[in-house]
Amino acid sequence: MQMPRALSAFLVLCRWLDRAALALCVAAGLFLTGAVLAIVVLRYGFGAGFIQLQDAAGYAFAVLMAFSLPVTLARGGHVRVEVLSERLPRTYLRTADAVALVLFLVPVFGLLIRAFWPDLAYAWSIREGSVETGGLGGLYLVKTALPVAAAMMILQGVAQVLGPRAGE
């Protein structure tokens, strides 16, 4: 069965966003690992601290956590609460996913975007930096990751419901 052109373009966009988020997660995870290793060696090996590196590690962790949510959802790695779902037909699971999308995923992540927007706008208006003296600037960029990841969660959820499933 042929998919409508708009739906196909939407699914391609979601796949592209997923790949970009995955690449960002991999980069953030690798950077975080190296940064924490360097922080530990500097602190306990040489008795020196490096506040900018500590901020960078915190920023990388925040980005990794925010973007790992849509990456996990796109791969079907979310946790199902239902105990009986493995015995039920696939049509039930597809319907349950659609209902969960409408009742929970879209409203919760939409509310997250709406509730966080004033804080994000303020952070951008003052170009918010680190709370630590001598720390890194650009905290406003890291804070942007949360609403972007929330929007990606909504898009990935819609793509999961509208897109073709394996085995169907």
Rank of each mutant, 00 (worst) to 15 (best):
P164K: 04
A150G: 00
G167L: 04
G137Y: 10
V12Q: 14
V71N: 05
R75M: 13
L30A: 11
L11G: 02
L69M: 13
S8A: 12
A98R: 07
L111I: 07
M153W: 01
G157K: 01
M3L: 11
F116T: 09
A35W: 05
V63S: 07
L22V: 04
G138Y: 04
W117C: 07
I39E: 05
A98M: 12
V40C: 09
R43N: 05
G137L: 06
R43H: 04
V81Y: 15
A66W: 01
R43M: 03
A121H: 13
D119P: 10
A35R: 03
V108I: 13
V148A: 06
K143S: 00
V40I: 01
G157D: 04
L17S: 04
L53E: 08
L88C: 10
G76H: 09
G138I: 00
V36I: 01
H78L: 15
R94I: 11
F31Q: 07
V102T: 12
A27M: 08
I154C: 04
G167P: 05
L64D: 08
Y140L: 07
P89R: 06
F116R: 03
S85R: 15
M1P: 06
E86T: 13
F104L: 14
G157Q: 03
C25L: 06
L155K: 03
D18M: 07
R43S: 04
R15V: 08
T133R: 14
